[in-house]
Design a protein around this nucleic acid. Structure first.
Length: 154
DNA sequence: GCCAACGTTGGC
DNA sequence: GCCAACGTTGGC
């Protein structure tokens, strides 16, 4: 079992948007970075833990606890000419982009990025490192445990 | 294979 | 809106 931090822009899909979805589950489409894709395609398994992180917004931070709800399958938006995620180089036979489904476990009181930065236990977290822009990053089990048991509040 | 130009991310 | 950091593209 692995643990992940997954960034979402709340203007695109917020924790409340996720809560409103059928089965409180969303397809994590639109990832167009190979490292992030490889994490989903090669490493994610049903039941992995995920921190749902709000990025590119007034108060960025961890907004909820989620779980990986499917293994990876081809991202439908790569084939959709109308989509901003359309990729002319992708074909049905050789899809280039994949996504998993992510299901809400529970919404928490937002743990702001500034709060995460205060804790030495988290200083090696990839998302906190300077210059990191990856939208999906692995979390150490210790980091997952610290955040979910020590910082997360209902 | 190099690398400059360009586009994107995302905190502030 | 700014801008640093980084990934991707494409000419050579």
């Amino acid at each position: 079992m692995r643990y992940w931090l997954m960034k979402s822009e709340p203007s695109d899909c917020s924790i409340d948007d996720l809560a409103a979805m059928t089965e409180q589950t969303v397809a994590w489409y639109g990832v167009r970075n190979y490292q992030a894709r490889n994490f989903m395609r090669d490493q994610m398994r049903v039941g992995d833990g995920a921190l749902f992180y709000h990025s590119n917004c007034a108060v960025p931070g961890v907004a909820g606890i989620a779980r990986v709800a499917s293994t990876a399958y081809p991202d439908a938006t790569q084939f959709d000419r109308e989509s901003r995620y359309f990729d002319p180089k992708a074909t049905q036979e050789t899809p280039r982009w994949f996504n998993v489904d992510v299901q809400l476990v529970k919404k928490i009181t937002l743990v702001p990025l500034a709060e995460l930065r205060k804790h030495p236990e988290l200083e090696r977290m990839r998302t906190l490192r300077r210059g990191n822009r990856l939208s999906i990053t692995p979390l150490d089990p210790a980091e997952w445990k610290f955040i979910t048991s020590r910082l997360a509040r209902d």
